Simulated assay, not measured.
Amino acid sequence: MASYPELQGRVALITGGASGLGLAAARSLAGQGMRVAVADLDAGAAERAAMALGPSGGHLAFSGDVASQGDVHGWVAALLARHGRIDVLINSAGIPDSFLPTVEQDVADFRRLVDVHLTGTYLVTQAVAPTMLQQGRGSVINLSSVAGVLGLARRNAYSAAKAGIGMMTRTMGCEWAARGVRVNAIAPGYMLTPFAQRLIDEGKLDAARLRRRTPAGRLGTAQHVAEAMTFLASDAAAFITGVTLPVDGGYMAWGAASDAYEGPLD
C-alpha cells in the first residue's frame, strides 16, 4: 500500500466501520497513523473493531443509527471533545436490498434502505461539515456502487439511494471546493466481501458469471476499495472533488454484447 505521511495524527470518522468495506478502510487509515472513530449499529462490533486497530489510544467506537440525527450529532460531539478535529469522513454504513421484483417490494423496506444509505450519508456529512469548513480542510468519501450508475433489476431502493449519493457527492463537492473541503465517492463493483459471499452462497449472485462480465476476470476485495479511499483521504487527491471513482475491474467500462473476460476461471 502507498504511504501518505501527511495523514499521521489526523482524525477520521467511519460509519459502518465495524465490517466489510468500512472496516477495511478503518484498518487502512489506522495503518497510516490516523486516529479512527468507528461508528456502527452494532455496538459490540464497533468496540471490537476499534480495539483491533491498535493500542494508540486514539481510536474510538460509537454505536447508533446513521438515520438518527441525534445519534449522529452525539458521535460528532464526542469525537470533537476527544480530538478537537475531524479530517476525514467515510460514509459506508448500509443495509442489504431485498432482491425482489418491484411489485413484491415492501414500501417500508424501501424507505428504510433509502433512509440509511442516502439520508444517513446526508446527515453525517451535514454534521461533520461545519468543523471541516472551519478547519479549511477535509475529505468526505461516500460509498456509491455500480448499482448507482447501471440499471440493476430488482434493486430499486438500493440503486436509487446509490444514484442519489452520486449526485449529492457532486453538489457538495462543488459547494465546498473553494473552502478546502473535498467530497468524493467510490463506486465498487462486485467485491468479495463477507456480504457478497453470503449472496453467492444463497444463489443471489453467480460468481462465475460476474467474473466473465468483469474485464479483470476476478472479483475485487475490500482492500482494493480501502486503498482508493486512503488515496482520496490524502493530500495526493487535493485537487479532486465531486468525483465518483469506479473500483470495479472495468465492469462499468465494458459495453460489448459478449463476455468481458475469456480466460480460465480457477
Results as ranks from 00 to 15, higher is better:
215 P>C: 06
46 A>D: 00
210 L>H: 05
55 P>E: 15
140 V>G: 02
1 M>R: 14
207 A>K: 02
62 F>D: 11
98 S>A: 15
185 A>G: 02
111 R>L: 12
2 A>P: 11
147 A>T: 15
30 A>H: 03
12 A>H: 10
18 A>Q: 08
198 R>P: 03
251 Y>A: 09
102 T>F: 15
40 D>G: 12
251 Y>M: 00
21 L>N: 04
12 A>F: 09
255 G>V: 05
82 R>D: 09
200 I>K: 01
28 S>A: 12
88 V>A: 09
57 G>A: 08
33 G>W: 12
241 T>R: 03
178 A>I: 08
59 H>K: 08
22 G>W: 09
243 V>F: 03
178 A>W: 04
77 A>K: 14
114 V>T: 12
229 M>G: 08
96 P>A: 12
264 P>H: 06
238 A>P: 03
222 A>T: 00
54 G>S: 10
266 D>E: 13
231 F>A: 06
46 A>W: 03
63 S>G: 12
192 L>S: 06
1 M>C: 08
256 A>M: 03
60 L>I: 07
194 P>M: 08
216 A>D: 02
47 E>F: 00
155 R>K: 15
173 G>Q: 06
25 A>I: 13
29 L>S: 02
56 S>A: 13
146 V>N: 05
77 A>C: 12
149 V>I: 14
263 G>S: 01
97 D>A: 14
83 H>K: 12
89 L>A: 08
189 G>F: 01
100 L>G: 10
42 D>A: 13
31 G>C: 05
190 Y>D: 13
163 A>S: 13
43 A>N: 13
252 M>S: 11
202 E>L: 06
69 Q>K: 12
168 M>P: 05
254 W>Q: 04
5 P>T: 04
151 G>P: 14
79 L>F: 01
250 G>T: 07
230 T>Q: 04
226 A>T: 07
4 Y>L: 09
113 L>M: 15
236 A>Q: 04
243 V>C: 09
